[in-house]
Nucleic acid binder design. Structure first.
Length: 438
RNA sequence: GGAGGCGUGGCAGAGCGGUUGAAUGCGCCGGUUUCGAAAACCGGUCUGCCCGAAAGGGUAGCGAGGGUUCGAAUCCUUCCGCCUCCGCCA
């Protein structure tokens, strides 16, 4: 949610922002409607003030006849007030609806571009390995070693489903555990176990709805709101970010409480609607996976947000360095940001099976995504804190993947494969897996 | 699944149709007092929107939404949450 006041003052900023993000919105329509809503509100307030005065006289009046006369007088305000109230409510709801769709303008440091092809490589780490044998894909490796079973997955749960087995399941648990341990023991994040089935309000508040409604699985038998309907989250970001937000208007946080550094491993559910035919084989694009997510809720300070963004990106890079997986950092261009981000950096990890043998860029697959949202989510969630001067302000929120598995198993299996078909377990995972070779 | 109760400011807790943004206590901030502190005393202490340069004023808000009424924290209604008892299941 963007700031309506700011939209009034700087409409061009938001028009340009939407254009840069390839989102079409009618900013002027919002402003026109907003003006109407405020007009109705102002008149309502004025009339109401008059009515209140008369009403208070009724309370004080002793003489019954006088009371009746005053009642009649006060009653005259009613129809007009009702009409104005209705108009105000109606128009305000429309404004709210439109406002939800207006994207957060990209930050100045985001390169302009149409889509993912205009993203900018920021840095590389590690050299893609060369093999003196014909390297296999993770699918071939895993099937040969009995690490997973796609046929059973499809039979039991449909396409894009899988079973992890023995070494595959162990490797999966190991990366999740490694990531959690690093974030909590070394980076000072608070470990959380969070709901993955949430109310619509949490999805809206974190900015996934209304835009991403078709990406979420809905749980519950009844259509009507309030009747046991929940949504499965596609990331722990939803619960972790909404965690600190009160359901009422009350301020819960104080500046000294910030920053909140939260991490959670959670199962993530994604419908992957509109991706038919894309990455259909293997572990790359699946409906259900586990992910360790990091969320930071900090003070309303652009410089601090930027610092955290870089910091959080660094944690994920650190994990990949420990796993010794070659990767590169991508600054997403304006057109690739989505509605809610001010800036987003992805990490892509080397996956030999994706490499076309010619263009190196083809060998990298997305494994991480670090978002900087400023007030966007906090406004929707009403996530606020009291600063040192006692002023109530919206928090800033950020999030980033620490690791998502089984997707991360693709680079692990493919980069660590041996000529004999076995896979060497990365050193940092050995204590978790309990052996050196799969 | 059935029956009942509850939801008020940072916290505790009154109010149950009339000038109540809301008594009282605690906490917090400022002041007086003190060599300093405690205690005591005095004052202040919510948020959104609108008007205003500001001081200030108007309006809305007592879990959330809707309704009744000249007027609602107080009545009705739907939803959300919590608690107690019974049933069911672990």
């Amino acid at each position: 949610m963007i700031d309506l006041k700011d939209l009034r003052q700087n409409p061009d900023k938001y028009k340009a922002g939407a254009r840069a993000k390839n989102v079409s919105v009618d900013v002027d329509a919002v402003l026109t409607l907003d003006e109407r809503a405020r007009g109705a509100q102002a008149e309502f307030d004025r009339l109401r003030a008059e009515q209140n005065q008369v009403s208070q006289q009724i309370g004080r009046a002793k003489d019954p006849a006088e009371r009746e006369a005053l009642k009649a007088k006060a009653g005259e305000f009613k129809p007009r007030l009702q009409q104005l109230g209705e108009e105000q409510r109606e128009v305000a709801a429309k404004v709210e609806g439109l406002l939800l769709a207006i994207p957060q303008p990209p930050d100045d440091d985001v390169p302009p571009g149409r889509d993912a092809s205009d993203n900018v490589v920021v840095r590389h780490w590690g050299e893609p390995p060369t093999f003196d044998f014909k390297p296999k894909s993770h699918i071939e490796i895993g099937e040969a070693l009995g690490l997973f079973d796609f046929r059973a997955g499809a039979k039991i749960a449909g396409s894009r489903s899988y079973f992890l087995k023995s070494g595959g399941a162990e490797l999966h648990a190991a990366v999740i555990r490694l990531a959690l341990d690093m974030m909590t023991r070394e980076m000072g994040f608070t470990p959380m176990v969070v709901p993955v089935m949430v109310r619509e309000q949490a999805m809206k508040g974190t900015g996934f709805f209304p835009g991403g409604r078709d990406q979420a699985y809905r749980v519950g038998e009844v259509e009507e709101a309030g009747e046991d309907v929940r949504f499965l989250t596609g990331t722990a970001e939803v619960a972790l970010t909404a965690y600190a937000a009160p359901e009422n208007e009350a301020v819960t946080l104080n500046e000294v409480d910030l920053p909140l550094k939260l991490t959670a491993a959670s199962t993530c559910f994604r419908r992957e609607a509109g991706t038919y035919g894309k990455d259909t084989a293997g572990l790359y694009r699946v409906h259900q996976f586990d992910k360790v997510e990091q969320v930071v809720i900090c003070r309303n300070d652009v410089a601090e947000s930027k610092r955290w963004h870089a910091e959080m990106l660094g944690y994920s890079e650190e994990l990949l360095r420990r796993l010794k997986l070659p990767h590169r950092v991508i600054q997403c261009c304006t057109g690739d940001l989505g509605v809610k981000n001010a800036s987003m950096l992805d990490i892509e990890t080397w996956m030999p099976s994706r490499f076309d043998g010619k263009t190196q860029a083809t060998g990298y697959g997305e494994t991480h995504s670090a978002s900087r949202l400023y007030e966007f989510q906090a406004r929707r969630l009403n996530l606020r804190y009291k600063d040192k001067e006692g002023k109530v302000r919206f928090c800033h929120t950020l999030n980033n993947t620490v690791v998502a598995s089984p997707r991360i198993l693709i680079p692990i299996l493919e980069n660590y494969q041996n000529a004999d078909g076995s896979v060497t377990v990365p050193e940092v995972l050995r204590s978790y897996v309990g052996r050196e070779v799969l």
